[in-house]
């Protein structure tokens, strides 16, 4: 028992072995491998349709892999529903923001603590002491999180009324209320202007240290990736074509071919 426990605590936050995903005849992901250690800030890039988001969807359990294994903190996730995988500590954001638009900002954060509410239907009807206490804690925690992200003045607004950049920020805050070990960011800079992007870079770096979380991100803005990531993987048509430190990846001829085509080089 103790042996396996030490094994789990030493295990990488995310390990993917020989991941394959086929949709009909199309291979979206082929033989993908990755190991992400605690505190890593790693990137995944590739041209449109390369299979990046598919990998994220596989990790969060939205698809079941055709082949291969995924471990979160040493625990296999095969057959788990997405909400169970999230409860293991995998949070994510989406390419196109998916906030709950008819709920207040505060409620958006509160509902994302669903897996550790610690009370169920009957407590919510009976309003037991346990319920009252937990609700107070949840509200407190949500308010604190909003304050950390400097969003507290929007607490009772609905997300639709916020500027786009603030919605991005809120989505990241909502993901962090999961208390994740692993945070997946799917194109966090999409649709932001250059000053917003500078703020986002600062934000991600700050989150990385403050929340002690492993971040894995997909992004098309190369400057963001070059500045933030310590490791980058490049995929094209589901195949891993390059990996390593940003400098190495930037000068890799295979990467240039994938992005710009053969004839340029």
């Amino acid at each position: 028992m103790t042996k396996t426990q030490t094994k789990i605590s030493d295990a990488p936050v995310l390990e993917i072995r020989n991941l394959n995903q086929r949709f009909g005849g199309l291979t979206a992901v082929a033989d993908f491998n990755v190991r992400l250690q605690k505190n890593e800030l790693s990137g995944l890039i590739g041209p449109n349709g390369a299979g990046k988001t598919t990998i994220f969807n596989l990790v969060s359990g939205f698809y079941q892999p055709s082949e291969g294994e995924i471990f979160v903190a040493g625990q296999p996730t095969a057959g788990l529903k997405p909400h169970k995988i999230t409860a293991l500590g995998v949070a994510r954001t989406f390419q196109n923001i998916r906030l709950w638009n008819d709920m207040t900002v505060l409620d958006n954060i509160r509902v994302a603590q669903h897996y550790r509410l610690g009370y169920g239907f009957f407590h919510s009807i009976a309003r037991s002491r346990h319920y009252v206490q937990r609700e107070a804690e949840i509200a407190q925690e949500a308010a604190e999180l909003l304050e950390i992200f400097d969003l507290q003045r929007y607490a009772n607004e609905t997300p639709g009324n916020l500027p786009y950049g603030t919605q991005r920020k809120l989505e990241i805050a909502r993901a962090l209320s999961i208390h994740p070990q692993l945070l997946l960011l799917d194109e966090p800079a999409a649709g932001l202007n250059s000053s917003d992007i500078q703020e986002l870079i600062r934000l991600i770096r700050w989150i990385h240290t403050k929340f002690d979380v492993c971040i894995w991100m997909i992004e098309h803005h190369m400057d963001v990736m070059m500045e933030l990531c310590t490791q980058i993987k490049v995929i094209d048509f589901g195949q891993t074509i390059a990996e390593g430190v940003p400098e190495k990846v930037r000068n890799d001829p295979a990467v240039m071919t994938a992005y710009l085509g053969d004839d340029v080089i």
Partner: peptide, 29 residues
């Protein structure tokens, strides 16, 4: 009481975006 608890607000989350609800740890089923 049900719909005003954080637990019950999972129902509204399903209504507004089911995928986000499931990914944000709401047991939608």
């Amino acid at each position: 009481r049900y719909v005003s608890s954080t637990f019950g607000k999972g129902v509204s989350a399903i209504c507004q975006d089911e995928v986000a609800a499931e990914i944000m740890s709401v047991n939608t089923n």
